[in-house]
Write a protein that binds this DNA or RNA. Structure first.
Length: 877
RNA sequence: GGGAGAUUAGCUCAGCUGGUUUAGAGCACCUGCCUUACAAGCAGGGGGUCAAUGGUUCGAGUCCGUUAUCUCCCACCA
């Protein structure tokens, strides 16, 4: 773009993304280089980009671009997840809007609509990722429900079934009455919810189904389920109720007789000590029912409405029925009192419906064995979790992993490969043909028409847990005997996984299990957990609150580079991100700064034969040293996944050090030219800075990098190498810092006290400890009237005669200085004593790692030389 | 109910094996500047008894105990 004063991201971003695509810059094939691999946490196929995606994918992209510039064969595999519940409910809603009910469709018809929806909306999010600059290898785009990956899921099911880890059984499951499906324990979110504790009076039966005057009181939060009661249960030790042993009570309103039973489960001091047992609609009650052989009566249908078994309030929704039955109970004289009560209620993660415990036949995968090896992978350090604190969370879950309910009463997903025979037995095979063959072995003469496939599909996570394997070689999952193809051999295990901690169990842990089972190796080496993006007030971003900005609008307004930088600025690993637009503004400002610094350097007139002045020489030397030191720091930050620290180090290097100090020091005076040597150094620094910041800001760096020199077709900064650190002189840098402090101090004095420039200069000279920095001080302190004479002043200073009208004496308060030095000296001596005590401690020397001991030795040496120096300056005072 | 983590400037957070930074950064704030790259900027400045309390140590923001507050995870007391 033109060298206008304002940088316009819109002008360059689409251009460069198209350029990268055209030149297949993101594509990777196995070769002799070391691979660096990331598989994308696949977003829902029907999803649209939100701030969480921006954070996650920005981090992924920074890592992959960094690895690419480090010379690795970087491969980022993109794709989408079919998200069975989420997608199916969207399709159902869309059909409903057209007046079509799912129940009126056949499975095939419904799936046709679903696939249409997928073709229309699927992949929108992938297009949006391009706007963000994501450098995914789009040739490798995968979808969890594409044929090969679906086959992998089916094969996996068969594999675990035959291994005896999958079973089919009646269990109390979490029923989502809105989505009409069972969901796993992990998909239930418990929230404390305000409800009521209803105390109800149950009259004792006289034995013939008639109430006596005697009664007991139970407390319940769910009065609408009393019709399904199978017993009243008390603790056997509860003497208050011993007189009721063997008695029966009558369920209010319907007068059905139920026994009073005793079980240790009941807490005597909770509620009234009487528990109504409703085996069909409560998981605990179910267990009690099993122990006491109680009948199970279901009174709720799949929608959560009361059915004929309830005898009253038939057809009413459970919450409506609750209101109504309370009224009826009150009128009938069964309601004793109502208490306000807060209890944890389970909600569906997807539909937010209140979960209904429901007894049904589902498929389960035993996790105990798998969890053990997955735990080992993390405990042994084969997988590192960042931050480390998630190890505890992970361990806790792995040690308490319940069997995983993997069937879902949905149509959108991989259908369970189980076929029922007329006699009720089941065969599990990858295809109907194989199933038929297997069935015939048992009952010859059976035909395909006799086989009835299970209606359910598999949990989405049952496909995503294969993702790091199946994106490379879908034939492997379920078939450990299958020889892995070239991609899988080369790219697996992947390098890093970046994801949110909310899916550590859903996804991360299960990928580790699948990896161990089918690959005998971990699926990734490092897992970096991002925080959750919240708004400025700490609230979760949500559609209903309307506090979630549209990332695409942000990108349109500020540019992708700014959005990326803004996001990273506020994201330390594992901490929640408080997003605020001002951070993106900061990103935009930084873009402007980079752009303008390029305009400055680009606009200089160069005199190739010009003599380099002293301040430029020192400035170049300084920045060269500083650059090397910073590169090392940045590398260290990247190694520790401290991405925002790495970014901040580069940001400060670029803005504070390069722009505010370096460029000001070497900037030629108005109308003058810069000497060739300084110019080359300046442009060289700029080039390295661009490369350092490229992983975070891909677009502006590509634009400027192309403007800096003639580039070949297809050439890109993406494939340039990360700048490497050269040697640097720590003392020199420290000296410069001190000089810089002096300058800042002088500026402060001048700003506040308005002292004469020459006096300011004198202060500079007084403070300067090394003649090398005098020219720098003269220039940077902006004492323009004296700039020309600085070198002369420096000379004079060196020989001890300073050409200043004010005598130097009196500028330093010797008494104060002496006190300061003495205090410092005492401190140093104590410090030294401490260090020596540590070093002479036999236990410390024997057990401390060598690096720690070395550090202590260095401390000792430093303290010694420091003491020496202090003593010397004390003597000279 | 169990577990984990947090508490440092107005806000968000660093502070990695106890010391050397006189506790730092970014943003925000205040003052002065439209100075010939940049007002989306420049220069300067103020602001913290490191939650409270006890202990270990020559030395504690850092380690240990207690208290308070908060966050997250797990958990079906009806």
């Amino acid at each position: 773009m033109e060298l206008n004063a304002k940088y316009n991201p819109a002008e360059v971003e689409d251009k460069w993304y198209a350029y990268w695509l055209k030149n297949r810059c993101f594509h990777s094939e196995p070769d002799s280089r070391e691979p660096y691999t990331i598989v994308i946490p696949p977003p829902n196929v029907t999803g649209i980009l939100h701030m969480g995606h921006v954070l996650n994918n920005t981090l992924n992209d920074v890592l992959i671009r960094k690895a690419r510039m480090d010379g690795k064969n970087a491969c980022w595999v993109p794709g989408t997840d079919h998200a069975s519940i989420a997608t199916e409910s969207k399709v159902v809603a869309r059909l409903a809007a057209q007046g079509i009910r799912k129940e009126d469709l056949t499975r095939e018809e419904f799936l046709k609509y679903a696939w249409e929806w997928k073709e229309e909306h699927g992949g929108i999010i992938l297009q949006q990722l391009r706007k963000l600059g994501a450098s995914c290898d789009w040739d490798r785009t995968k979808f969890t429900m594409e044929p090969a990956l679906s086959d992998a899921v089916t094969a996996t099911f068969v594999y675990f079934y035959k291994k005896g880890l999958i079973y089919h059984g009646y269990r109390m499951v979490n029923w989502d009455p809105v989505a009409h499906t069972a969901i796993s324990d992990d998909e239930v979110i418990h929230r404390d919810t305000k409800s009521h504790f209803y105390h109800l009076r149950y009259f004792i039966s006289d034995g013939n189904g008639n109430p006596t005057k005697d009664f007991l009181v139970i407390a319940t939060t769910r009065p609408e389920t009393i019709m399904a009661d199978a017993a009243i249960c008390v603790n056997p030790a509860d003497e208050r109720y011993h007189h009721l042993r063997g008695k029966k009570v009558l369920i209010p309103l319907i007068n059905r007789e139920i026994p009073v039973i005793e079980d240790d489960y009941v807490e005597m001091d909770f509620g009234t000590g009487c528990l109504k047992v409703t085996p069909a609609h409560d998981a605990h009650d179910y267990e009690i029912g099993q122990r006491h052989d109680l009948p199970i009566l279901e009174i709720l249908d799949d929608d959560g409405r009361l059915n004929e078994n309830a005898r009253i309030l038939i057809g009413q929704d459970r919450f409506e029925a609750r209101k109504n039955i309370v009224k009826m109970l009150e009128e009938a004289g069964n309601l004793v009192k109502i208490e306000e009560y807060i209890s944890p209620v389970g909600y569906s993660e997807r539909t937010d419906a209140v979960i209904e415990p429901k007894l049904s036949k589902q498929w389960f995968l035993k996790l105990e064995e798998l969890a053990k090896s997955a735990l080992e992978a993390v405990e042994s350090g084969n997988i590192k979790l960042i931050p480390d604190k998630y190890r505890n969370v992970y361990r806790h879950w792995m040690e308490n992993a319940h069997d995983w309910c993997i069937s879902r009463q949905l149509w959108w997903g991989q259908r369970i490969p189980a076929w029922y025979l007329p006699d009720g037995s089941v065969v599990v095979e990858e295809t109907v043909e194989k199933a038929l063959k297997a069935a015939r072995a048992a009952c010859p003469g059976i035909t395909q028409a006799d086989l009835q496939q299970d209606e359910d599909v598999l949990d989405t996570w049952f496909s995503s847990w294969l993702w790091p394997i199946s994106v490379f070689d879908a034939a492997r999952p379920g078939h450990p005997e299958h020889k892995p193809n070239r991609d899988l051999r080369y790219y697996y295990p992947t390098s890093d996984l970046v994801t949110g901690p909310d899916i550590i169990f859903f996804w991360v842990a299960r990928m580790v299990m699948a990896g161990g089972e089918f690959m005998g190796d971990v699926p990734f080496r490092n897992v970096y957990f991002t925080g959750i993006v919240r708004d400025k007030l700490g609230r979760k971003m949500s559609k209903t609150l309307g506090n979630s900005p549209d990332p695409l609008e942000l990108i349109a307004k500020y540019g992708a580079d700014s959005v990326r930088l803004g996001m990273l600025l506020c994201s330390s690993a594992g901490n929640d991100i408080l997003y605020d637009e001002s951070q993106v503004e900061q990103g935009r400002n930084f873009c402007g700064k980079i752009w303008n610094s390029w305009r400055l350097v680009n606009g200089w007139r160069v005199d190739e034969n010009g003599r380099q002045n002293e301040s430029s020489r020192v400035a170049v030397k300084w920045f060269d040293n500083l650059l090397s030191r910073t590169i090392l720091q940045v590398e260290d930050h990247y190694r520790k996944f401290r991405i925002n620290d790495a970014l901040m180090a580069i940001y400060k290097l670029f803005w504070d050090d390069y722009c505010s100090w370096y460029l000001e020091l070497v900037k030629p005076a108005y109308g003058e030219a810069v000497d060739g040597y300084t110019y080359d150094a300046t442009v060289g620094f700029f080039d390295k800075l661009l490369k350092l910041i490229h992983p975070v800001m891909p677009f502006i760096t590509e634009e400027i990098w192309h403007a800096m020199a003639e580039r070949h077709a297809g050439e890109t900064i993406m494939y340039e190498r990360t700048p490497v650190a050269g040697p640097f002189d720590e003392d020199f840098l420290a000296g410069f810092d001190q000089a810089r402090q002096i300058i800042t101090g002088v500026r402060g004095i001048r700003a506040q006290k308005q002292i004469a420039p020459k006096d300011a200069l004198k202060l500079c000279i007084e403070g300067a400890f090394s003649r090398e920095f005098l020219p720098i001080i003269g220039k940077a302190a902006n004492i323009s009237a004296f700039t020309d004479t600085v070198e002369g002043a420096a000379q004079s200073f060196i020989v001890g005669t300073v050409k200043c009208s004010v005598p130097l004496e009196g500028l330093v308060d010797t008494g104060q200085e002496r006190a300061r030095i003495l205090a410092d000296l005492e401190h140093q001596r104590k410090f030294l004593a401490g260090v020596r005590a540590k070093l002479s401690n036999a236990g410390f020397v024997a057990h401390a790692p060598q690096s720690v001991i070395d550090t202590e030795r260095k401390k000792e040496a430093d303290a010694l030389s420091r003491i020496e120096a202090l003593e010397a300056s004390l003597n000279s005072l």
